[in-house]
Design a protein around this nucleic acid. Sequence first.
DNA 1: CTCACGCTTTTGGTATGACAAAAAACAGAA
DNA 2: TTCTGTTTTTTGTCATACCAAAAGCGTGAG
Lengths: 232, 232
Amino acid sequence: MRQRAADTLVAAIEAQIQSGALAEGDPIPPEREIVREHGVSRTVVREAVRILASKGLISARPGFRPVVARLGYDSAIGAVGSVVTQLLGQPGGVRNLFDLRTRMEASLVRDAAQIATAEQIGQLEAALDANRLAISNSAEFYETDIAFHSILYEVPGNPVLPAIHRAYTDWLSQHWIKMPRSPDRNQINHAAHKAIFNAILRRDPDKAEEALRSHLDAAWTQVSITFGNLNL
Amino acid sequence: MRQRAADTLVAAIEAQIQSGALAEGDPIPPEREIVREHGVSRTVVREAVRILASKGLISARPGFRPVVARLGYDSAIGAVGSVVTQLLGQPGGVRNLFDLRTRMEASLVRDAAQIATAEQIGQLEAALDANRLAISNSAEFYETDIAFHSILYEVPGNPVLPAIHRAYTDWLSQHWIKMPRSPDRNQINHAAHKAIFNAILRRDPDKAEEALRSHLDAAWTQVSITFGNLNL
DNA sequence: CTCACGCTTTTGGTATGACAAAAAACAGAA
DNA sequence: TTCTGTTTTTTGTCATACCAAAAGCGTGAG
């Protein structure tokens, strides 16, 4: 018994999905039908279905027929959720992920400074304005902060990037949300956003990257002060 | 029955792992023992175990006691494997991922040009040499090519980056491996590597990025010619 | 004493049957 | 037609059984 029966079943169904025999949104066949077709026990079928569900290929609400999931870059990122949670809990985990985010956004602001269209710059300006107006309201400021950054992820037009941004905010917000906020700090962050925006406006990638890095480095310093360098 | 029994079991075991009650490398209790402790059927236990395995939290070779997996950034990436495979199959999937890789490596070569230590530059030089010596052997050239790029991912010292590189090569190699190779093309690629290296040596981030981008753009052009723009 | 060999027990992998609860399908009434 | 109540499917779970492989154990040879 080299290979598990459930695994071969999983592969078979994956193939059916990839070939389009099972289109997205379609419910998969009833368990007992799969039993007949593949000549395996229901135990095996159930295991296969649950594995596919946890992989994100099908979505199985309890009691309902599992349906083939609409595949997107978001579901790919959702599939890693639990592992990432574990990794963030170990020493340096948050730091490593945050570094990755800094690197990504540094790259994005360079791009924005070089290739952003007038319309995209207008969006950035609007987001910056909304950000300014929310300085006195920390909860709203947090939202507009994320919105400002998210525009940067949309500039290159690669659909993976916005998904990555959602992942970053999902994962890191667990830690960020606990940080004390104040209009003072919001003021500082808004100023940083404005510096980034101005550098993009002046089409200066180096300045944009520098402004972005100093913004995120400052944010990191705040976080590590707040949590006292505990297992970050 | 609002919640599935298997899911609560999964959560319980996840908690045990996170709390350290189950240390990495430890085998999880036998199925029948979990049955007794949690008062559920073996069916449920099996489902839970398989879900944890597909999440990457435990590693279950067929026939063996599942053990708590050593958590690393690689296992996180392994968990997305199947979804990514599906995504690569849809229009633009390969292109989007390749763009992401280009962006990442552009950022890395900038870093390398600015912060690489003498030792790291030495490693790059050695890799470049190995790359040159393999020009006549396409299989070996492919290996040394990957090795050269992998050093770039190690320069910043963030352990997530090498894992990302392995993921890129795993995923994209499915497509790259089918590409025809020749000493001529190897010669061109080696020259591109050398240009990147020289720019790093001269501590010129802009030139390094430009060399990297033109290298990868050329590689992409080759690929899309080869596959005739079919669903890339 | 150590190591190797074979036996027994444990454990995972699969199959089968059963039943409750929920969803889906259906049929009949308004 | 639309609403409603009933029947049929289907999922979720449990209990049991059996096989084969792995792990543990004890014994005997060196």
